[in-house]
Design a binder for these strands. Sequence first.
DNA 1: TATTAAAAGATAATAATTATCCTTTAAGTT
DNA 2: AACTTAAAGGATAATTATTATCTTTTAATA
Lengths: 133, 133
Amino acid sequence: MNNYTEILRQHNLKATPQRLEITNALYTSGHISIENLYDVMLKKFNSISLATIYKNINLMLEASFIQEVKIPNEKSVYELTKETHSHIICDSCGEIRDIELNLDSVISNAAQSSNYNIKKSALILSGTCKNCQ
Amino acid sequence: MNNYTEILRQHNLKATPQRLEITNALYTSGHISIENLYDVMLKKFNSISLATIYKNINLMLEASFIQEVKIPNEKSVYELTKETHSHIICDSCGEIRDIELNLDSVISNAAQSSNYNIKKSALILSGTCKNCQ
DNA sequence: TATTAAAAGATAATAATTATCCTTTAAGTT
DNA sequence: AACTTAAAGGATAATTATTATCTTTTAATA
Ligand SMILES: [Mn+2]
Ligand SMILES: [Mn+2]
Ligand SMILES: [Zn+2]
Ligand SMILES: [Zn+2]
């Protein structure tokens, strides 16, 4: 029983081999699309149904065990839920990297000028990574 | 010949009645989904094809005449291209509002810590608007 | 080990998007 | 103002993405 078993159960998700492998794929890749996840899963479960992928992704989303990241001009990717963070994407090689940025002052400015009570933020930056420059 | 005719042509898009109306719908609504756009268009062109909507949205995107806005947990919406801006969404009533925020310092921090050459940013804030609080 | 609700797999159904083909038309050209 | 033509529109088929249904299997608990 590895540590993911426990974490899945904490989210009221049965720790099936398929889910453990999805979790592993998410952990290993950091961010993964449905399509790529299916490919990865097929290597371990040669007859896994695509429906199983979708059902689990949706259940995991509902349980807030994972989160969707919507990237401009790209297919959505999914990641294990962690502390709030931003993303930075390389237009050239496609790398998706987590980045911790302090948005406090931006958010407080936004709250002031909009009169919104702001609860969440999603920031995606894009450009070229060191390698691709 | 209204002003949109000119702007469409500047983007190498023929100024058809359908495109003028799409443009008008985008202007009027600010941000609109494919589904809602189709509904709006049907009122003016009772036999417009959904394919026409998709084809035009894609052509307009390629021409950078419009842009897609991907909102967490929502369907994508489209808007006329304008100066870079952020978005703030009300979880309760669904309002999508433009907001101009200065992200310079956030971006320069990000550039420094990631070694990326950052070209674009997409920030979406969410919470509850004044009315819904 | 037995029980059972939930999950997996197969596959049908639906929704979203794109492709094809034929007709119409915007935008130049005469 | 009529002529030409590449592009656009409409109808609809095809493809892709996602969800629903149903039967079998299994994780979790007793
Ligand atoms: Mn991330
Ligand atoms: Mn906007
Ligand atoms: Zn790169
Ligand atoms: Zn509201």
